[in-house]
Design a protein around this nucleic acid. Structure first.
Length: 949
RNA sequence: GCCCUCGUAGCCCAACCGGCAGAGGCAGGCCCCUUAAAAGGGUCCCAGUGUGGGUUCGAACCCCACCGAGGGCACCA
């Protein structure tokens, strides 16, 4: 640094010094400690008791070894600026942060190094925590925790036992304690369909049989069903964790459908509420749409073709059904498999097998072995075999062949369809391949090219002695057919959902153990029992080998083997669960990574509470509904859109269960949610296609060079692989945290994705230097604030800036707030120059305006201006509306929509006055000479438009 | 294939739910300061809103079609 730089300029070095000092002081003074109304964190509540509350959060990070890059803080800074603004503006603000610390990367690292995942995870947490502190965020660090803390996962396990201890009462439309189910069953309530053993009744079951029936009603239940088995990871996965092309989201390994006994969560019971309550949330339309699509409600009818029940959304096309299809796993496949082929069977229908049984068995085996990926790769060529049986169309009496084909999915609807090739593309393809007839029941338009017609049109070929549909439109036809089906007992109107129950077991080490044991001996052996609350947490034991047994990626027949099953000291335990000491074995699966993030927002309210998962009084204060149908929840939740259907759906589900059971007063976890944009960065490849370090690429005349050689510019995610990693630490090292904060916030609205541009950061640095210079004389270090009159135009600029900054802060458009502060600063620099007195109010308001954005700078200036307390608690300036309006305004006068003149008029001139003034203007009069004025539109304060010809 | 979001100066982005297209920043030009350079200060430059229609006195904004980018879902009956 040259000696010509003024000694008291706001340089990066000075910024660093100021920032570190204030960060220490904030910590020492507990500046950002948020008082609770009650409990262990209640100290200081008096100070904020009359303030409205505001609970703001980010989606907490997974502590990876790579630390944070410049993309991560975008959301964190967005909530931080909002939090600081709301605190100054008179709210009691809760802005906590934690760590989502169970998960695969730490476990995989442990498998490689033999180091316990807790060790690496905690080191990573410490590193990220230091990065966050250096950014100057105002988290109440007393409330920080990680999902791996036993004091936290104790309550994750407790919530599991609550879900396990509940069932969904379809009549009441809500979850209830399982004891109440037993009482009702004893009193004669019908068990849910499929839960009773064949041909039995509740009253004649023995105790163990009854337990099985009750267990089948629970919201957390064991189920043998086809699940997503991923041999490459050695674990099963939920539907949400499998990509569209049939691979694991983590690691990109093939996934196979395989029947296994696993823990499930009955999220489907909440389909309707999860869907309906979206309308009550302040979330973006696109995010709500993603959840709606995932839940996938569709309205249709069940139709019984003899014993085969199908689901269709087009009952109007029943006359066009020419065959039926069952999913390969459908329970009726076996009984519908005929002993022999009919004499004249089409050779395409038999799969080349001698008997239907052989054909079906071969087809089922093939279907089970195919991964989802294979099904895609084969281009969706329709395959299937004939069962040899026929079913009767209830409306036409026609006999329809019954096929088995994997284009019908087992988990959706009834797992069986009526195929209408005339109006369904998939059915048409199958019909073509298998030589099945096509009957059109909807009149296609002129010139229709053939194939399935899925559009609308009048019904045809659809009348008989029972029902006459011909000529009707779709809605009327659906109503007519459905009425007939219901009346004659052949079906009913119904709603189905794409959403499936949540597969909740993982064959992993680094996750929450299930609070579940199974008796080893006795009649109730292998039935699950929840570990009592007072025995929680079930601690994760240490093991020698953290790895699940993994297999060749494509070994579809392999079976999961969880790492905890090898912790033999731990797996077997003697417990007294009420009927004396007995030997039990523990559940050896662990919970999925999503469990910990399903309720962490509640734990911030008091992470040290060892007697509740959350104190109801705190939940009511921070989360409770605000009346008028409000769902309650966190006031602002910011995070990436990638969690649209995983975390956000699971957390909503858990929250609703907790609400039904009376543990929380809010119906939804997150009242308002914003997805922050991504920061991407340019990356460069050389002639060989290898990435070169982006930081060393230079631009010259629009071309890019690395070490003198031309390189190609690409655009993508920030990270090591593209060699375009930029960290907040580097930027803070070069400019200071405040400059980094202002830069990130200035590049666009929070929701918007944007490119990172290191060379543009200097603009934010210059702004902060100018702000500093307004308050501090650069050569002497003296504060320029003085008692002086403020000129009217400056007063207006000041109030206008306050108004604009407030607008930007409340709408999360921090770029607007910064632009308004920049305008003010530029105005002040012009008026007051680089030295000399500046009115005190100007200095103070400017400081407070930027305090949420550049908090360290503001603290330093605030302190130099003579204030003892933190600027974080100073009141945010309020604009006086009187200074926001001008006496006169300039309005445009248009003739036929083209601007022809500008006029100065009183700001309060009404439409009539504007019109008179405009028409009296000589230029306008000249333009209108010889024309007839047809119409005059005058908008006060805006313009006048004269329509003439 | 279906659904959603978005196209405004060389770049990032504003424009008050239809009213004069430009606030702020980056880059670039010029000037001041400086022996010089950097830093700093000042000032200037550039678009008519992806394309084509429509509605309207008036459209970046509303409607239709197309083009382009990004995202979600995808054999869901």
């Amino acid at each position: 640094m040259s000696e010509t730089v003024p000694p008291h300029r706001y340089t990066p070095e000075l910024a660093q010094q100021i920032e570190l000092a204030w960060q220490d002081r904030w910590e020492a003074e507990g500046t950002f400690h948020t008082p609770n109304p009650t409990g262990s964190l209640a100290e200081g509540f008096d100070r904020v008791a009359d303030r409205p509350k505001a609970f703001l959060m980010d989606m907490f990070p997974y502590p990876s070894g790579a630390g944070l890059h410049v993309g991560h803080p975008l959301g964190y800074l967005g909530t931080d600026v909002t939090s600081r603004f709301l605190r100054m503006d008179g709210h009691n603000v809760l802005h906590p942060m934690g760590y989502d610390a169970f998960g695969l990367p730490a476990e995989q690292y442990a498998v490689q190094t033999g180091q316990h995942p807790r060790v690496t995870t905690e080191a990573n947490i410490a590193a990220i925590s230091a990065q966050l502190r250096r950014l100057g965020v105002d988290h109440d660090r007393r409330r920080t925790f990680a999902t791996i803390d036993p004091g936290y996962y104790k309550w994750t396990q407790w919530i599991f036992t609550q879900i396990f201890g509940a069932w969904f009462d379809d009549v009441a439309g809500k979850a209830r304690p399982i004891d109440e189910l037993v009482t009702e069953l004893d009193a004669g309530r019908e068990p849910a369909p499929g839960t009773l053993p064949e041909g039995r009744t509740w009253s004649d079951l023995d105790d163990v049989e009854r337990r099985r029936v009750v267990d089948a009603h629970r919201l957390a239940y064991l189920n043998q069903a086809p699940v997503n088995w991923c041999p490459g990871l050695g674990t099963v996965l939920s539907n949400e964790e499998v990509t569209a092309d049939g691979r694991s989201e983590r690691g990109n390994f093939p996934v196979f459908r395989r029947p296994l006994t696993q823990w499930m969560m009955r999220i489907t019971a909440y389909s309707e509420r999860l869907l309906a309550d979206l309308d009550r949330l302040d979330w973006s339309d696109s995010l709500k749409q993603m959840q709606r699509n995932w839940i996938g409600r569709s309205q249709g009818a069940k139709v019984r073709f003899g014993e085969v029940e199908v689901f269709t959304t087009r009952p109007d096309t029943l006359f066009g059904a020419t065959y039926l299809v069952l999913a390969p796993e459908h329970p009726l496949v076996e009984s519908l498999t005929a002993a022999a082929w009919p004499a004249d069977v089409d050779p395409r229908w038999t799969g080349g097998a001698a008997t239907p049984a052989e054909a079906i068995a071969a087809y089922q085996l093939q279907a089970s072995r195919r991964s989802e990926l294979d099904r895609q790769a084969e281009g969706r060529e329709k395959t299937g075999v004939f069962t040899g049986s026929y079913a009767t169309n209830p409306l036409t009496g026609r006999e329809l062949p019954v096929f088995v084909a994997d284009y019908v999915l087992t988990g959706y609807g009834t797992g069986a369809i009526m195929a209408v090739p005339g109006e369904d593309t998939r059915d048409f393809e199958f019909a073509e391949a298998f030589g099945l007839p096509v009957v059109r029941t909807v009149q296609p338009p002129e010139g229709f090219g053939g194939g399935a017609y899925t559009g609308t049109g009048p019904m045809i070929n659809s009348s008989n002695e029972h029902v006459q549909l011909d000529g009707l439109d779709k809605a009327a036809a659906i109503a007519a057919v459905t009425d007939w089906l219901v009346e004659h007992g052949h079906g009913e109107s119904t709603t189905t959902y794409k959403l499936r129950d949540w597969l909740f077991s993982r064959q992993r080490y680094w996750g929450e153990p299930f609070p579940v044991v199974y008796a080893v001996d006795g009649p109730d052996a292998d039935l699950p029992v929840a570990v009592p609350a007072e025995q929680l947490p079930v601690l994760l034991p240490d093991v020698d080998d953290y790895s699940p047994k993994t297999f060749a990626d494509d070994d579809a027949t392999s079976a999961p083997e969880p790492p905890l099953s090898r912790a033999t000291e731990w797996t077997t335990v003697t417990l007294d669960l009420g009927d004396g000491p007995r030997e039990y074995r523990r559940e050896t699966n662990t919970m999925p990574n999503w469990a910990g993030s399903c309720w962490y927002y509640l734990r911030y309210l008091d992470p040290s509470d060892d007697s509740h998962f959350v104190d109801p009084e705190l939940e009511a204060y921070w989360m409770g509904p605000r009346g008028g149908g409000d769902v309650g929840g966190v006031d602002l939740y910011v995070g990436g859109v990638e969690h649209a259907v995983l975390h956000l759906l699971y957390a909503r589900f858990w929250h609703k269960v907790l609400f039904d059971l009376g543990h929380v007063s809010s119906e939804e976890p997150f009242r308002r949610l914003v997805n922050q944009g991504y920061i991407s960065a340019y990356a460069y490849t050389d002639a060989r296609g290898f990435y070169v370090p982006a930081a060393e690429v230079v631009e010259k005349d629009g071309q890019f060079f690395f070490e003198g050689q031309p390189v190609n510019r690409e655009y993508g995610k920030i990270g090591k692989s593209l060699k375009n990693m930029v960290t907040p630490d580097e930027m803070i090292g070069a400019y200071g945290a405040d400059t980094f904060r202002v830069y990130e916030m200035s590049t666009g609205p929070l929701e918007q994705s944007r490119p990172w541009e290191t060379k543009a950061v200097v603009g934010s640095q210059r702004l902060l230097q100018r702000i500093w210079r307004v308050v501090v004389e650069e050569s002497t270090g003296e504060v320029r604030a003085a008692d002086a009159e403020i000129a009217t135009d400056t007063l207006k600029a000041l109030h206008r800036a306050v108004d604009g900054v407030r607008d930007g802060m409340t709408t999360l458009r921090f770029n607007i707030a910064i632009a308004r502060a920049t305008e003010l600063t530029n105005h002040l620099t012009q008026v007051y120059g680089q030295s000399g007195p500046v009115p005190r109010q100007v200095c103070e308001w400017l400081t407070l305006l930027v305090a949420p954005l550049a908090p360290h700078l503001a603290e330093e200036l605030w302190s130099r201006l003579g204030h003892d307390g933190s600027s974080a608690w100073a009141p945010f300036p309020v604009a006086d509306p009187a200074y926001l309006v001008d006496d006169t305004v300039q309005i445009a006068v248009q003739v036929n929509g083209k601007v022809k003149a500008q006029l100065d008029v009183p700001a309060d001139a009404d439409a009539a006055a504007l019109e008179a003034t405009a028409l009296a203007d000589p230029r306008i009069a000249e333009l209108l000479a010889g024309k007839t004025v047809r119409k005059v539109v005058a908008v006060p304060g805006r313009l006048v438009n004269v329509v003439a010809n």
